[in-house]
């Protein structure tokens, strides 16, 4: 179990973060660059000293609380994998894996198999591909009996197929070893396959924590919606004239008959992308992106917004007024 509640300060930037991650589960920290993800990872690892707060792993106080002095990083029993594998270039793959004084041989052998590194033992890091190097980095860190796994953009820069495979393996191993895992990334595709819960961090503030599907279903803040890739349109409650913002994910726009909020649009452009058609839609002066299995002819069309969200002027998720979607006017 990881329990973290810290305030960190770097120049003008302040990070406030609190979460707990039970053993065997993975918490993804998602946010744009500069949102404080790396600071958080370093604060938990002991590489950065928070201004205040507590960090406890497996019941051991590592920072604040009953820990009079912060436990130094090399005594924290925490594994860290970053975007760069940082393999020791003067050692072979095998020597890298068994580098740590606390590395467990049996555990390492098992992990080498799980990550498919059997044939690479004698190779030098300089001869490995990016994906191979990152797998070695994972095994090296997990071969030590650690209490927590920290990952900072661990799959960034790897090709999409390998990402999916590696994400699945890491998730399985974390469950098997029953250790908590904290993974930070600025791309959702990197996190979706790996995490049980997601924390949205923007500008050093924790905006929302929950299951990925739950966050999609009800983003509490407009920044969360934006970071999930939703498109924003200005709107108004017809009866009261209250200004609102409407958010809709490109994947949640459909065409033809069905439920949802109807929006008359102009099809401005179509291109084939990853097995389906990406449509550029115009609505007054705004433009939207939507996907469909078949290309629509250019010109007038009716788009159905299946699961739109409304946000009040302060940026909080707003309830749909009693009149339903008919009571909302999307401003062109």
């Amino acid at each position: 179990m990881l329990e973290v509640d810290v305030t960190c300060s770097r120049g003008d930037f302040t990070l406030e973060f609190a979460a707990s991650v039970p053993g065997g589960s993975t918490l993804g920290v998602f946010g744009p660059s500069g949102s404080g993800k790396t600071t958080l990872i370093e604060a938990v690892a002991g590489l950065f000293t928070p201004v205040a707060g507590t960090v406890a792993v497996a019941g051991r106080q590592l920072f604040g609380g009953s820990a009079a002095v912060p436990v130094p990083p090399n005594h924290r029993r925490i594994g860290l994998v970053r975007q760069r594998a940082a393999l020791f270039p003067h050692l072979t793959v095998d020597e890298n894996i068994h580098y740590a004084a606390g590395a467990d041989r049996a555990r390492a052998r098992h992990l080498v198999e799980r990550f498919g590194l059997e044939r690479l033992g004698a190779r030098r890091p300089s001869s490995l591909s990016g994906g191979e190097a990152q797998r070695v980095a994972f095994v090296r860190v997990l071969a030590v009996p650690i209490d927590l796994l920290l990952l900072d953009e661990p799959l960034t820069g790897l090709d999409v197929e390998l990402r999916g495979e590696l994400a699945t393996t890491v998730r399985e191993v974390v469950r098997e070893l029953e250790i908590p895992c904290l993974v930070a990334a600025h791309e959702l595709t990197e996190l979706e396959r790996m995490v049980d819960t997601l924390a949205i961090l923007v500008g050093g503030r924790l905006l929302q924590v929950g299951e990925v599907s739950g966050i999609y279903a009800a983003p509490q803040r407009v920044e969360v919606a934006e970071n999930l890739g939703m498109q924003l349109l200005p709107a108004r409650e017809s009866a009261t004239g209250r200004e609102l913002r409407l958010a809709i994910h490109p994947e949640a726009i459909r065409f033809g008959a069905g439920s949802g909020m109807a929006l008359p649009v102009t099809v401005e452009g179509v291109r084939f992308l990853r097995g389906r058609y990406e449509h550029r839609l115009g609505y007054g002066g705004r433009s939207l992106v939507a996907y469909a299995g078949e290309p629509l002819p250019a010109g007038e069309a009716v788009a159905r917004l299946v699961t739109p969200h409304l946000f009040d002027p302060d940026g909080w998720l707003a309830k749909l007024p009693p009149g339903g979607w008919q009571a909302i006017e999307v401003l062109p």
Binding site: N74, L80, A100
Partner: peptide
């Protein structure tokens, strides 16, 4: 010497 390597050695438990 790349500082990332030293950091990794520290996290692996090195004094």
């Amino acid at each position: 010497v790349d500082r990332a390597l030293e950091e990794q050695a520290t996290m692996l438990g090195d004094s």
